[in-house]
Amino acid sequence: MYIAQTLIDAISLGSLYALVALGIGLIFGIMRLVNFAHGDLITIGAYALIVPSASATAVLWIGGWPWPLMVFTIVAIVMAAALLIERLAFRPLRKADPTTMLIASFAVSFFIQNAILFEYGSRPKALNIGASLSQTITFGGMRVLLLDVLMVAVTAFLLCAIGGFLRWSKYGIWVRAASENFNMTRLLGVRANTVIGIAFAISGVLAATISFFVVIKSGLLSYRMGVPLVLMGFVATVIGGMGSLLGAVIGGYLVGAVSVFMQALLPDSLRGARDAFVFLVVIMILLLRPGGLLQVSTLRERV
């Protein structure tokens, strides 16, 4: 029973990491960019819900709109932010070394965090949206949060939708081709800006989705809220197999499961160091399968 309930907890946390990993993996596949600012897109989506102000009590802004409009607007804002970052920071660096791009994404992330700190003040902001989703339902002694059910469903839906888009639509095929061999794709006449724009737009949608889940779950905004997510997202993407979207999702669930089971099974005295054990497992996975769980053959590190 305890194990079964823990499994439910693991799936719920895993869905969150899987969504983050999906956004990161998509961009990495195409650009070899480790987009550290992805976490801050999540933060932007969350902060857009409230009125910009440094006062301690948050006042709902977009968060107070009827939900279809709210969802649409937040997704649009985050998508716009993702495209803007791509245009201003990453497009000029497209030919640069991956480390340079990584540092650029870090600079962007640092800027966004400090801009939020500047505009909204340092205290975390509280808000309550989607209250009807934070109900617990019980069946057969098992507890599950309605929100978690939705999260798993949305992860599955987005994975299928993005997968379908990549497989069957013209633009999707471009994106996939680009992530296999970017230069070749360009030589075949596919516009790089279009492909990369599409990837960033999708990553924006994913980030906005996570904004909602995190805000509904925790009821809190803080200027660094995206950082722990993006770290776990990276790890998930790499152990899943860089460039493989399914791998990223599997990696996300795996990291979530390892984390939850460590919490549940470690003895008292070691539980405080839970993440140390989680990362030891990560190192072990990397050593056993350096190319990731689902290795993409064309994505062997360029040598």
Binding site: V34, L231, V235, A276, F279, I283, L287, E301
Partner: peptide, 15 residues
Amino acid sequence: AGITASIATLAVYMV
């Protein structure tokens, strides 16, 4: 190699 090694160094940091 590459990004895998980078993530491994991150894991070392966290541990």
